[in-house]
Every structure is written in structure tokens, then in C-alpha cells.
Design a protein around this nucleic acid. Structure first.
Length: 687
DNA sequence: CTGTAGATAATACGTCATGT
DNA sequence: ACATGACGTATTATCTACAG
């Protein structure tokens, strides 16, 4: 057990304590399990180098893509390193000297949690053994982890007899309260360029959690103590016996083998000193890994934007198992994060205003080039290359974030349409038709009952009427009659039939309706996403509930003058007391200003109340205030008067959200629903 | 029994994790 | 700037408890 050469990856090395015998066992066990996991990870023996991207070994040559005298190594467990930078060697020697300094200086602050310094017995003068290969997502013996990871299902497999593993291990030895054993052993052999590991309890005992997680944010000024220490340890240096011995002493393995975090802040934005970074997700882990392995040669991709694109191509082409594997690692990191920071909560700084992103024009062939690079890298590793969609160049076309977003939305819309169509088709059975007829009958009766209220006008159409109207042509410019969905709430009372008792429509039973292209479509509510829940439907209520709700259409006798984002609600139960509402909504999905919402006004109260979920709006709200709010809201709406055709389009668009149409009488006396004139005193200006 | 308001579901969209 | 994924807030619609 000699060799574990110190390979300081990027940052200056942390001061490392020397290794105790137990530490040696730990490292051996770690390496053992790592090598096992590597094998397991690739799903084959170590001779098979054509497997997964993560741990397999392939030498990549991209000479024909672009002149490059260098081979690129990817997750190589067998090959020797191509180069070892002078800086790295210098840092390695610095590390060993820093160990001496540390032993004199006493305990130091914790280094990066994810970069445990592996215990190692490598003499500082030994030949660097460095072929850095990746550590797959840690699949350590659960007992080896301070955080008790899930054990990998690893069948005992012969260790690779050569090659080296680069471990990114964090030294836990140089912390405020080291266990006496580690300290003593450190003092006993200060010349060793290694560090010991400690138990989980020691981890918590000695350094703050934050320091462990975000070593790069430490302000201790001691660069060594806050930097990642990574090592390359030759697997051949590890005896089987030591591994087994370590395995028998699981509690002595608190090290974490993982993809190290950078020690330098990667973004210019200032972070608080105690900022805790988020756990990385699967893709970011993969990206970090690929970047560290030099997977995308710099010669081929000058900037990280391209690197991201290339790696994303590779990512999407990875088989599911491999992506799941990275997802597991991300989950593991997330779990550790949660353990370290139980009170942590992601707090994005929400800059809602003036979020303007610069649009950068791309070179025409850049995307294609990136795609080719990714494709070649994959093929160099025995893969099929970048998997393209059905459309040959769809990946290229949709490479930009906005494009992909757009494509995803289009796909989502298509999916939604299919779902609706399928639901509608499935709802066309005669049994459901009978249900629907019954529902309509009951609904009509309910409306009649409600209409008996003196405050209710009779102009409100029944659902059946509306359904009939929906069969008419949409662009009814000849008649100037329009049908718009509106809301009506019917409560179960002595005067109103209990809809839900007799009608099981709505959420549980589809209301069959043909998908019409030239008229309002009555969708089965159960098939509708939230933003398309319009038309009329009801919600079944359990018998003990007092109310049931359905959407009742309003028959409007005037063209729609108001923007589609304005809509009205009418509560049937409130009609007797004059409850009616005007709601002006400017949803964020619309290309208009922030939302202003005006909610029901109770005419039965002397002081009309205003309800809004916005706390910054005054309440109670007077009619004058409502008028002002509505005026302000609508004045900012610069939409041309909608026609039915574009209303239909808007309803079909997810960006319309749940906006309903409203009509405003040309007389300009105020907002008016077809069922009841309300708030005539508001006196909004005509548009 | 009615009207109100809090709770909650559904959806959209923004930030941040890495790296230079 | 750029990728993907996790997770936050914002918004709207719907559900439901409860005071009067």
C-alpha cells in the first residue's frame, strides 16, 4: 500500500494530516468499492471499454475534426495520463509541505466537503500516478459513508490490475476538533502527503456544516484549508486484504468519493460569505465530470456555451440507465446536503422586473458543428452517436433554449389536445350520452329554479342553450350575438336541486362533446388542464356538502368589446342578494402588464367588499375604487377587440390561462353581464 | 342557509447549480 | 452565454370551513 500519489487537481491542496492505520483501511475500502462500482457501473468487466460514459475508458481522438495533437481521455480506468501539468506537480509538492505546516499550526478549518482527502500512504516523492479517471457516482459501501448511502448492488468482481483512480476526497483531519487518534497519527508522520479521514460524528463535531459544503466560500484566508484535494491513487497499490479489512470496519469509512466541487466561485455575482450552494443536479454533475475529464477539448470548443451545448447533446443521447445513474448521484448529493443543512432552503432572488436577456446571434453552422462534435465524442466511445429526433435536424433547429422551450410547449399542447380528443372520444358511449342528457335536464331545472329569484334575469342561457349556441358558427357577425362562457354557482338548497346528487358529470364523468373546429367546444372537464377549464361543467359534491358548482354559459347580445383578459363572474346564489362580480385579470401569460384583479362585489352590503389575493390592494373596495382599478387595468390592455375566431384561438392557447370573455355594452354604462346589470355607476370608457 | 375568505390545486415562469 | 433539472414564487381557479 504505497502509492497513492497526490494529485492536486485545481486548487492548492489543503493541509493534510497523516494517515493512521485505520485510515489506510478506509482508503483501501473506498478504492475497493469504487473499483467495484466502476465495474458495476459499466455493466461489464473492466475489459469492456465501450460501455457507459462515466467510468469506461476510451481514448478519444478528434484529429480529423480539428487538428489536435492530444488525445482526450474519458473516464479512463486503464490508460495512463497523457499529461500532468507543472502546476499540478507544484501544487502536489506544496501539499506535502503544507502538511508539515499544518501539523505545527494546529487545527484548521474544514475543506470542501465533497473532496475528502483520501488517506494515503504515498510518499511525497513517489512517482506521480495520475491517469485521472472519473469516479462514478459514488457507490460506496453504505457503511463507508458518513451519510449512509444506499449500497450498490455490486457482485464481487476482480479488481482491475492496473490503472489509477482519481479520488476526490476531502480531508477531514484538519479541523478544529480532530479525534485524538487522527491528530496523533498526523503528528507521528507529518511528512506523509496524505490526510486521514474521520468518522461521521467527527465530521459534525469538528467543522460547521457550511464549511464542509461550501469550502470555497470560507473566509478563513487559508487557501489550503478550503481547497479541494484530489488524489490519484493507483488501484494496484491497494491490497485486497486491506480492502477487506476496511470493509470489516465500516465505521471507519466516512470519506465521500464524489465529483468535486469547484473551489472557486464560478459566477461573478456576489454571494454572501455564508452562501450555501445548491446541490447539483444530474446534468450539472455530468457536465462537471465531462469538463474535468477534458471530454470536450478546448481546441474544438472555445467557449463554455458551446461546451454546454455539446455536453447537452451527449446528455440527451445517454442511455436511460446512465442518466438514472447520474440522477442517483444527484440524489445522493441532495441527501447529503439535506443532512448537512436541514434548514436550508433554496432562495432564488426573484427579479421579476426588467429581466431582459441579450439575444446573441449564432453562427449558422455553429449548432451543427456542436452536434457533430458531440456525435463524434459519443461514437469514439462506442456509442451510437447523438440521437436525433424524427425530424433530422430538429435538434439543431431547437438548440437554443427558447427554441427548445417553444418546441416543448408545442409538444405539450399537442399532448393536451390528444388527451382531450381521446377523452372526448371515450365519452361518446351511449351510457355517457344518457348521463349527459340527464345532467342537462337537471341543470336546466336548476337554472329555472334560480331564475325564480327576483334578482335574477332570465337572459342567462341554460347549459343546454349554450350547448346549442355552441353549435352555431363562431363568427356570427351577422347576428352580433355571441356566446361566452361564464361562471355560475348553484348551491344546494331547498330551492335549488342538488346537482351533485343526481348528476355525476364534471370531474368524474366526461361531458361528451364533439371536438368542433368552428364553434365553442365543450370539453369534458376531467380531460381539461387547468387553463382550459372553461365551457360548462360541474363538480360533483358529496352529499354532505351544501353546494355544487357548474359553469353556466352566458348568452351575450353584444359584440365583445373588452379584451379577453377581462371576464366576469356571476354567482347564482348571490343573485338574490345582488351579488355579482367584475373581474379584470391581466394574467402573466398575456403579453400585458401585471395582473389586476377585481373580485365580486356584494350589492347586498352597504359597503361593497372587494376580494383579491393581492395584499397590496386596499380592501374593502368601493365601487369608485373598482372603477379606478378596472380603468387602470383596461387602459393598459392594448388588445384589439377580439372576434370569436381569435377568442377560440386564445381559449385553445395555454397562455390564455383561465381568462373568460366578457361583454361590455356599447352603451358604455358600465360592465354588464347578460344576467344582471351590475355596477352601472362605474362608467368605464369605451375602447 | 348564505356569503366570505382561507386553503389548495394547477399552471407558468424565474433562478441557480457548473465552468470559463 | 449555454445546457438541464430542481425548486422557488406568482397567478388563477376551485374547494370548503365557518361566522352570522
Amino acid at each position: 500500500m504505497s502509492a497513492a500519489a497526490l494529485d492536486v487537481d485545481c486548487p492548492p491542496p489543503p493541509p493534510a494530516a497523516s494517515m493512521s492505520r485505520a485510515d489506510g483501511k478506509q482508503l483501501a475500502s473506498v478504492l475497493d468499492s469504487v473499483s467495484d462500482s466502476l465495474i458495476d457501473f459499466s455493466g461489464s468487466t473492466t475489459n469492456d471499454t465501450s460501455s457507459v460514459l462515466c467510468p469506461s475508458s476510451v481514448t478519444l481522438e478528434l484529429a480529423h475534426l480539428q487538428a489536435s495533437s492530444q488525445s482526450f481521455k474519458l473516464f479512463d480506468s486503464t490508460a495512463r495520463p497523457l499529461r500532468r501539468s507543472a502546476r499540478t506537480r507544484r501544487q502536489a509538492s506544496q501539499a506535502s509541505t503544507s502538511v508539515e505546516k499544518l501539523s505545527k499550526a494546529g487545527p484548521r478549518k474544514m475543506s470542501n466537503y465533497f473532496s475528502h482527502a483520501a488517506s494515503s500512504s504515498t510518499p511525497s516523492g513517489s512517482t506521480p500516478c495520475s491517469a485521472p479517471i472519473s469516479i462514478p457516482p459514488a457507490q460506496l459501501d453504505p457503511s463507508s459513508s458518513a451519510l449512509h448511502r444506499t449500497p450498490p448492488a455490486v457482485t464481487p468482481t476482480p479488481m482491475p490490475d492496473k490503472g489509477a483512480f482519481e479520488l476526490h476526497l476531502e480531508s477531514t483531519a484538519f479541523r478544529d476538533a480532530l479525534p485524538s487518534q487522527a491528530s496523533s497519527s498526523s503528528a507521528a508522520s507529518p511528512s506523509r502527503s496524505s490526510s486521514s479521514t474521520t468518522h461521521a460524528a467527527d465530521l459534525d463535531h469538528s467543522a460547521t456544516r457550511h464549511e464542509r459544503w461550501a469550502g470555497h466560500n470560507l473566509n478563513d484566508g487559508g487557501a489550503a484549508g478550503s481547497k479541494v484535494l484530489s488524489r490519484s491513487v493507483s488501484s494496484s497499490d491497494l491490497g485486497e486484504g486491506s480492502s477487506r479489512a476496511a470493509a470489516e470496519d465500516p465505521a471507519s469509512l466516512p470519506v465521500s468519493v464524489s465529483i468535486p466541487r469547484s473551489t472557486a466561485p464560478s459566477h461573478a455575482r456576489k454571494k454572501a460569505a455564508d452562501h450555501v450552494p445548491r446541490p447539483r443536479n444530474a446534468f450539472i454533475l455530468f457536465r462537471s465530470h465531462a469538463h474535468r475529464q477534458g471530454l470536450v477539448p478546448k481546441e474544438l470548443s472555445a467557449n463554455h456555451s458551446n461546451i454546454s451545448v455539446i455536453i447537452s447533446h451527449m446528455w440527451r443521447s445517454l442511455p436511460t440507465e446512465e442518466r438514472e445513474m447520474w440522477a442517483k448521484e444527484a440524489q445522493r448529493e441532495k441527501d447529503e446536503h439535506a443532512l448537512l443543512y436541514p434548514d436550508y432552503k433554496f432562495k432564488p432572488v426573484y427579479r421579476r422586473e426588467n429581466v431582459v436577456r441579450r439575444s446573441v446571434r449564432k453562427e449558422g453552422d455553429e449548432e451543427e458543428k456542436n452536434l457533430k462534435i458531440a456525435d463524434h465524442i459519443l461514437k469514439s466511445h462506442g456509442r451510437d452517436g447523438v440521437q436525433l429526433g424524427e425530424e433530422p435536424n430538429s435538434n439543431i433547429i431547437a438548440s437554443s433554449a427558447s427554441e427548445r422551450k417553444r418546441v416543448r410547449r408545442a409538444e405539450s399542447r399537442a399532448k393536451s389536445r390528444n388527451k382531450i380528443a381521446a377523452a372526448a372520444a371515450s365519452a361518446s358511449s351511449s351510457l355517457e350520452q344518457a348521463h349527459r342528457n340527464r345532467a342537462l335536464k337537471v341543470a336546466r331545472r336548476a337554472v329555472r329554479e334560480v331564475s325564480k329569484s327576483p334578482a335574477t334575469t332570465s337572459s342567462a342561457a341554460s347549459p343546454a342553450d349554450w350547448h346549442c349556441a355552441s353549435q352555431q358558427a363562431w363568427d356570427g357577425t351577422q347576428t352580433q350575438d355571441y356566446v361566452a362562457p361564464a361562471l355560475r354557482t348553484v348551491r344546494r338548497s331547498s330551492s335549488v336541486p342538488a346537482l351533485a346528487d343526481s348528476v355525476n358529470w364534471g370531474k368524474s364523468t366526461c361531458t361528451p362533446a364533439p371536438l368542433s373546429t368552428d364553434g365553442p367546444v365543450i370539453y369534458p372537464a376531467s380531460a381539461l388542464p387547468q387553463h382550459l377549464k372553461t365551457g360548462f361543467h360541474s363538480y360533483p359534491s358529496p352529499p354532505h356538502q351544501r353546494s355544487a358548482t357548474y359553469h353556466e354559459p352566458m348568452h351575450l347580445s353584444a359584440p365583445l368589446h373588452t379584451p379577453m383578459s377581462a371576464y366576469s363572474t356571476v354567482s347564482a346564489s348571490g343573485l338574490s342578494s345582488g351579488l355579482a362580480g367584475v373581474q379584470v385579470s391581466r394574467s402573466p401569460q398575456m403579453p400585458i402588464s401585471p395582473m389586476t384583479q377585481v373580485h365580486p362585489i356584494s350589492a347586498s352590503q352597504h359597503s361593497p367588499t372587494f376580494r383579491s389575493q393581492r395584499t397590496d390592494l386596499p380592501r374593502p373596495f368601493t365601487s369608485a375604487g373598482i372603477a379606478s382599478a378596472v380603468s387602470n387595468a383596461t387602459s393598459a390592455l392594448d388588445l384589439s377587440p377580439p372576434t370569436w375566431s381569435n377568442f377560440r384561438d386564445m381559449l385553445a392557447s395555454p397562455h390564455v390561462a383561465t381568462s373568460y370573455g366578457n361583454a361590455r355594452r356599447p352603451s358604455g354604462t358600465g360592465w354588464q353581464s347578460s344576467s344582471r346589470l351590475v355596477n352601472a355607476d362605474i362608467g368605464l370608457p369605451m375602447r
